[in-house]
Each structure stands twice: as structure tokens, then as C-alpha cells.
């Protein structure tokens, strides 16, 4: 019986077609539906998860290619019940519109900040350019990443209360 290391746990996935993309194993077999299907061809980034800390498109990874890697999904970020600075910033800036792409956006942003604690605009753009937001929340995503970086670095950050607080 095959197993995967997901969000710090070893999970049985039973006898499964090894060509099955990780995306569908997460969603259909393990009930981890936070990772989303958007295009199936690595164009939209809705299915982004971390593989040993690096952002990858789970629609392109056959589960048969996985063995010991540590997989982190959106459900694993606040596994202990405490939101990460990125998740907090997303709420404070009111980033989501429909919200469907945001798990992928948050996984890409989290991976960026894990390797670069103070990214420039250009570095943010580059790291996030694989994630489509059809509702076009890009300006808020950019701001939320900066706020999250500031939180992590203990520096001041943009306050949405300027001109009206965000409840």
C-alpha cells in the first residue's frame, strides 16, 4: 500500500493508478479539497502545493513519482490552529473575491517568503506570475505579501485602517 507524507503525517493512499496527479489524490482520495483544479496544464497555479518546501503544480505530478518527499497543502499551513503571517495578512487586506485561486496564491507566497524574507516588487511579481486570479486581486496579493513579510520581520506594515479600518 502506497503512502505519502502530507502535512507532517503519513497517509495511506491505497492501491492507486500511479499516473494519477497528486491534485486528484489530495482531493478525491484524501479529502484535502483546499487544493484546487483550474486548468490541468500548469497554467493557472490553483493546484499549487509545496514539495519539500518548493511550490509545484500538483496537477502535473503523477503520484507514482512521489516517495519520501514532504508535501504541504493549504490545510497544513495552520495545522496547529494558528494562522501563518501570510494567512493573517490575506484576511487583513481582504484579498479574496471568489477565493477559488487563493489557496494556490497563498502557497506560492508562502514559499517565496520562506526563501526571501524581504522580497522586492519584482521578486514578488516573478514568484507569483504562475498564479492566475481571474477576479484580479493582484494588487491586494502584492500588498498582503509585503504585510506578511513585515510581520515576519517585525517591521511596520501598511495598515488598512488608513482612511477606514478593516473589521
Amino acid at each position: 500500500m502506497a503512502t505519502l507524507n502530507i502535512n507532517g503525517q503519513t497517509m495511506d493512499i491505497g492501491e492507486i493508478d500511479p499516473s494519477t496527479p497528486l491534485l486528484w489524490v489530495l482531493r478525491d482520495e484524501l479529502g484535502l479539497v483546499g487544493t484546487k483544479y483550474g486548468c490541468g496544464i500548469a497554467q493557472c497555479g490553483a493546484c499549487t502545493v509545496h514539495l519539500d518546501g518548493a511550490p509545484v503544480r500538483s496537477c502535473q505530478i503523477p503520484v507514482g513519482n512521489l516517495s519520501e518527499q514532504q508535501i504541504t497543502t493549504i490545510e497544513g499551513l495552520a495545522a496547529d490552529g494558528t494562522l501563518t503571517p501570510v494567512q493573517e495578512a490575506w484576511i487583513e487586506i481582504d484579498v479574496p473575491q471568489c477565493g477559488y485561486c487563493q489557496a494556490g496564491q497563498i502557497m506560492s507566497a508562502t514559499a517565496l517568503l520562506n526563501t526571501n524574507s524581504n522580497p522586492s516588487d519584482a521578486e514578488i511579481d516573478a514568484a507569483m506570475s504562475g498564479n492566475i486570479c481571474r477576479c484580479a486581486t493582484y494588487t491586494r496579493i502584492r500588498q498582503a505579501i509585503k504585510n506578511a513579510a513585515a510581520k515576519m520581520n517585525g517591521t511596520a506594515f501598511y495598515n488598512a485602517a488608513e482612511g477606514g479600518e478593516l473589521a
Partner: peptide, 21 residues
């Protein structure tokens, strides 16, 4: 008249099941 963050945002950022899919 003030700014309010979306009521589902707390669940959205954690990938909770909300959508039709």
C-alpha cells in the same frame, strides 16, 4: 461605510471546503 473583510476569508485562507467543487 467602513471596510470589512469577507466573512469567509478565515476559511478560504485555510482551504476549508466552501466551493461547489
Amino acid at each position: 461605510g467602513r471596510r470589512f473583510t469577507g466573512v469567509d476569508n478565515y476559511d478560504i485562507v485555510q482551504g476549508k471546503p466552501l466551493f461547489g467543487a
